[in-house]
């Protein structure tokens, strides 16, 4: 709780410098991470590996943005996947129908997502825990049924077909698989960096305070509703970018992208990786995709395998992998300190 009391108020002078220095460290990490990812296609000649990383970028952005809601603010959204679907469909439709450049289509999709998120969020964030989960789920299903029923626009249950054109922009040609890969990695790294800045900003600490004690937060003058709505919209934007990557990757969009199972998987990814560390959801994404790919390859009883793994995490470890690793590292460090 002690760190939660550090607010964006006057008394917090010593802490003003700390996040700024941490921000530089984050940027350095991001550049190193991006360099490693960008080097992969030149080291390994494997299309499967690149595909895997592109999928990780899409789901990683989605899951990390969900963690802004679940882990940082305590808003358990069961409908976050709607923004993933909205991103995929919005981007795909703009590219197919409006004949615009890729960056313009992305910006327009973000604007559409933001408007949708403001409207939906304004209704949802007032509700508490379980009701919030269900109403977000209901909105998700509403969007899913709109996609299914508006056949003339979305292609109904067939999805957006006919492929997405990828005109060259700024010298980037996304029809080239390696360039698409680099582009996805860049979006992933920039997205993660921005979300990290949000999480470490005074606003990020306000969110943690709302999670721990919303009443106290409102007593010291925080507009809880506005803060929750802001993070809801921000998270929706990053989820939408994830959807756009997915839409570029499969060159289309399918109703499954907007189905509730995407949200369920997002929650599960967070649980798997852990919600207390920033990179937990990223670790969870990699784990779930590996688990998915191996389980579907090895057995047709994929559900039983996945179910048992979930149970192991929920009842056995009782926390995500990253949480477990961090606790283990702390215990080990304390022990080492004691001995020396």
């Amino acid at each position: 709780m002690s760190e939660l009391n550090v607010e964006n108020r006057a008394g917090a002078a010593p802490f003003v410098t700390r996040p700024r220095r941490a921000a530089y460290t984050d940027i350095v990490f991001a550049i190193i991470g991006f360099a490693i990812l960008a080097a992969l296609p030149f080291l390994f000649d494997s299309k499967a590996l690149l595909d895997f990383v592109i999928r990780c970028s899409a789901f990683g952005l989605f899951a990390t943005s969900l963690n802004l809601l679940v882990g940082y603010t305590g808003l358990i959204s069961f409908g976050h996947g709607m923004f993933f679907g909205l991103g995929a469909y919005g981007f795909g439709l703009l590219m197919q129908r409006a004949n615009v450049s890729i960056p313009l289509a992305m910006v327009c999709t973000l604007a559409i997502t933001a408007v949708a998120a403001v409207v939906i969020g304004a209704i949802c964030v007032r509700l508490k825990e379980i009701y919030f989960a269900f109403v977000t789920l209901a909105f998700q299903m509403l969007i899913h049924s709109v996609i299914l029923s508006w056949q003339s626009l979305t292609g109904g249950d067939q999805g957006l077909r006919g492929g997405i054109k990828r005109p060259v922009f700024w010298g980037i040609d996304l029809t080239n698989h390696v360039q698409l890969y680099i582009f996805s990695c860049a979006l992933l790294v920039i997205g993660l960096l921005l979300m990290r800045q949000i999480a470490q900003s005074p606003f990020g600490y306000t969110l943690r305070m709302i999670r721990d004690n919303a009443t106290r937060a409102s007593f010291i003058g925080i507009n809880v509703w506005r803060a929750k709505l802001t993070v809801f919209v921000l998270a929706a934007l990053f989820a939408s970018v994830g959807g756009m990557i997915m839409s570029l990757f499969v060159s289309g969009a399918y109703p499954e992208f907007a189905y509730w199972t995407i949200s369920g998987e997002g929650i599960f990814i967070n649980m798997l990786g852990g919600v207390t560390t920033f990179l937990g959801p990223m670790v969870g994404t990699v784990l779930l995709l590996i688990l998915n790919d191996t389980a579907t390859r090895l057995t047709e009883h994929y559900g039983i395998v996945l179910g048992v793994v979930i149970l192991f995490f929920a009842l056995g470890l009782r926390k995500g992998l990253m949480d477990f690793a961090v606790d283990w590292y702390r215990a080990w460090r304390d022990k080492a300190k004691e001995q020396s």
């Binding site: 825990e129 929650i267 599960f268 179910g307 048992v308 979930i310 929920a314 009782r318």
Partner: peptide
Amino acid sequence: VYGRDVLMQLLVCYAFVLIFDDSVK
């Protein structure tokens, strides 16, 4: 999972949705 957070309860149930469906299969 009585008294544990909602997320944990949902996950245990979600795991069993998968397991039960596959068992029936």
